[in-house]
Simulated assay, not measured.
Amino acid sequence: MNDFWKEEQDISQELSLVHDLINNTVDKAQGFIRPVLLSHVQTQGKMLRPALVLIVSNLNKEADRKEAIRIASVIEMIHLASLVHDDIIDSAQKRRGKVTIFAQVGAKQAVLAGDYLLSCALSLITGKDTKMEGIIVSNALGRLCMSELEQDAGQGNFFITEQEYFKRIAGKTAALFALSCYAGASVAKLPPEMKNRCHRIGHFLGMAFQIQDDILDYTGSEMHLGKKTGNDLRCGIPTLPLLLALKSEKEQASKEFPLKKLLTTNKKLGQTDVKKAVSLVSSLGGVDQAKKIADTYGNRALIDIQSLQDEQVCRQLTSLFTRLSVRST
């Protein structure tokens, strides 16, 4: 059972079926990569994206549950593949406290492992009478890849605009959240206006989630995160708390800019520099300001959620948002 969903037995049971389908699909892999991939997919996170598919699909109580589980599995495998590629870009040795595929087999074979997971996801769509348009999946996957490419190409450049940051996370994270909600609405055979509303809910939830995730990189603990605080800084990745702190520093009357100087002098920050930067971002109000923006996105999602007129779905989505807002991992 996924502990995150232990209070929602219906979701938890269907997520177990999603997990089984992913395992059975990956189990068909050949050679040395099979146990590596199985270990990766068996390390369950919160399974937020498949859960969104399952929750939203219940807007129609007659929705095909097997179809919902299959589509949820597709989206989760796309997400799992993106994590493999993320770890290569970040040279990450651990994720959720476990050794990454990159650390086990190296970059070249990890890329192929991530690609294999994507092929597994597509195999569950091809030739099926799916309720979800393939172009929607393709667009979301394209946005995810482009955002990762832009982030990788810009590593070490801490001085991007807020608009660039929002565009990145819209593709990197919010696109799959939006796809998940849209997919659930498609399985439920909802009219176009409702599909678009569900897509919007997913987008806002994904934006809030990623900003909160970026905040945790400054405020979380290594024990909870499974990685050191300040990892984004260490990898040369600018996120919203940093951008807002730099903005606050620029607006101050003082002509000293310690955070800007630290980032300008060192494109690759050492551990001491990372600690200094984390402290400065917090003291300059970057974290608090980022929280307010995350709340704004979350509140926009809640407005649409409350208009769905389904008590159970509204409760589950609202509860999910609340728990994500106060999470430590």
Rank of each mutant, 00 (worst) to 15 (best):
Y165D: 01
S248F: 08
Q13A: 15
I88G: 00
V187M: 10
S186I: 03
S12T: 13
K268F: 10
C120W: 03
T264F: 02
A68T: 01
Q155P: 00
L216F: 10
S186M: 04
T126E: 15
K247N: 13
A153K: 10
K250R: 15
V99P: 03
A107I: 11
I215L: 05
R143S: 06
D232P: 06
D20P: 03
M47G: 01
A63C: 14
A92R: 02
K227A: 09
T130V: 11
C235V: 04
T329F: 14
L80F: 05
A175R: 01
E193V: 12
L243T: 07
P50A: 10
E148V: 06
A92C: 13
T239E: 02
S221L: 13
S123H: 12
H40M: 13
S307L: 13
N231M: 11
L216T: 10
L117N: 03
S221G: 15
Q306L: 09
R327P: 01
M132D: 00
L48P: 01
G285R: 02
E62Y: 04
N196S: 12
D310Q: 11
S12K: 11
S307A: 15
L144F: 09
K250H: 07
C181D: 08
S328G: 08
L302E: 14
Q316A: 05
Q163F: 02
A153C: 06
D90R: 02
V41I: 14
Y218D: 03
M146D: 04
E62Q: 12
P238V: 04
G230H: 04
Q316I: 12
H85I: 11
P191D: 14
Q289F: 04
S325V: 02
S254L: 13
S279E: 15
G171E: 06
F166C: 07
P191I: 13
L324I: 09
E7L: 10
S16Y: 04
V36Y: 10
G45F: 07
L52H: 06
H40A: 11
I101V: 15
G127C: 12
I303T: 13
G114V: 13
F4A: 05
K247D: 10
D217G: 10
